[in-house]
Computed example of a mutant assay.
Amino acid sequence: MIRATGVPLASGTLFGGGLALGGMTDPARVRGFLDLFGAWDPTLAFVMGGAVLVMALAWQVQRRMQVPLFAEGFSLPERSDLSPALISGAALFGVGWGIAGLCPGPGLAALVIEPASAAIFVIAMLAGMGIARLIGK
Results as ranks from 00 to 15, higher is better:
residue 116 A to M: 13
residue 89 G to E: 02
residue 78 E to D: 12
residue 36 L to V: 14
residue 43 T to F: 03
residue 51 A to Q: 07
residue 43 T to P: 00
residue 7 V to G: 01
residue 120 I to Y: 01
residue 18 G to I: 03
residue 107 G to P: 07
residue 30 V to E: 00
residue 130 G to P: 02
residue 2 I to G: 02
residue 128 G to R: 02
residue 136 G to V: 05
residue 128 G to A: 10
residue 28 A to F: 07
residue 117 S to H: 11
residue 10 A to H: 07
residue 83 S to M: 13
residue 74 F to W: 14
residue 49 G to K: 12
residue 99 I to V: 15
residue 72 E to W: 08
residue 37 F to D: 09
residue 72 E to S: 12
residue 62 Q to N: 02
residue 84 P to F: 09
residue 124 A to F: 06
residue 68 P to K: 05
residue 128 G to L: 11
residue 98 G to N: 08
residue 109 A to Y: 07
residue 4 A to V: 15
residue 29 R to N: 07
residue 84 P to S: 13
residue 71 A to G: 07
residue 80 S to D: 13
residue 18 G to S: 06
residue 128 G to E: 03
residue 55 M to S: 12
residue 127 A to N: 04
residue 68 P to R: 02
residue 1 M to S: 07
residue 33 F to A: 12
residue 48 M to C: 04
residue 82 L to E: 06
residue 37 F to N: 10
residue 55 M to H: 11
residue 89 G to H: 04
residue 89 G to Q: 01
residue 70 F to G: 11
residue 57 L to T: 12
residue 65 M to W: 03
residue 53 L to N: 07
residue 103 C to K: 01
residue 68 P to Q: 03
residue 134 L to S: 06
residue 56 A to D: 05
residue 122 V to T: 01
residue 88 S to M: 08
residue 125 M to W: 15
residue 38 G to V: 11
residue 112 V to T: 14
residue 88 S to Q: 01
residue 90 A to H: 05
residue 113 I to N: 05
residue 108 L to C: 09
residue 51 A to W: 10
residue 119 A to C: 01
residue 131 I to P: 00
residue 9 L to R: 05
residue 61 V to A: 10
residue 123 I to R: 01
residue 13 T to F: 14
residue 132 A to S: 14
residue 44 L to S: 04
residue 4 A to K: 09
residue 36 L to T: 08
residue 53 L to A: 14
residue 14 L to F: 15
residue 82 L to V: 15
residue 89 G to P: 01
residue 44 L to V: 09
residue 98 G to Q: 03
residue 123 I to A: 11
residue 111 L to F: 14
residue 59 W to Q: 05
residue 71 A to Q: 03
residue 53 L to R: 03
residue 57 L to C: 09
residue 40 W to A: 04
residue 3 R to P: 05
residue 81 D to K: 13
residue 54 V to N: 02
residue 102 L to M: 01
residue 48 M to D: 03
residue 108 L to V: 15
residue 42 P to M: 06
residue 57 L to P: 00
residue 82 L to A: 10
residue 51 A to L: 11
residue 99 I to C: 06
residue 72 E to A: 13
residue 121 F to N: 00
residue 117 S to T: 15
residue 1 M to W: 08
residue 46 F to A: 12
residue 23 G to I: 00
residue 115 P to S: 11
residue 115 P to Q: 13
residue 127 A to M: 15
residue 1 M to I: 15
residue 114 E to L: 12
residue 58 A to I: 08
residue 73 G to Q: 08
residue 5 T to G: 14
residue 2 I to C: 02
residue 80 S to F: 08
residue 36 L to I: 10
residue 24 M to G: 05
residue 22 G to D: 00
residue 49 G to I: 14
residue 48 M to V: 14
residue 10 A to T: 15
residue 87 I to K: 03
residue 79 R to G: 14
residue 104 P to S: 06
residue 94 G to Y: 00
residue 51 A to T: 09
residue 18 G to N: 07
residue 97 W to E: 10
residue 44 L to C: 06
residue 123 I to L: 07
residue 4 A to Y: 11
residue 104 P to L: 10
residue 122 V to G: 04
residue 46 F to G: 10
residue 78 E to T: 15
residue 56 A to K: 06
residue 3 R to F: 13
residue 112 V to S: 10
residue 107 G to W: 04
residue 96 G to F: 12
residue 62 Q to G: 02
residue 110 A to F: 02
residue 59 W to R: 07
residue 118 A to C: 08
residue 94 G to S: 11
residue 15 F to M: 13
residue 55 M to N: 08
residue 2 I to W: 02
residue 25 T to S: 10
residue 10 A to D: 14
residue 22 G to R: 00
residue 63 R to W: 06
residue 46 F to D: 07
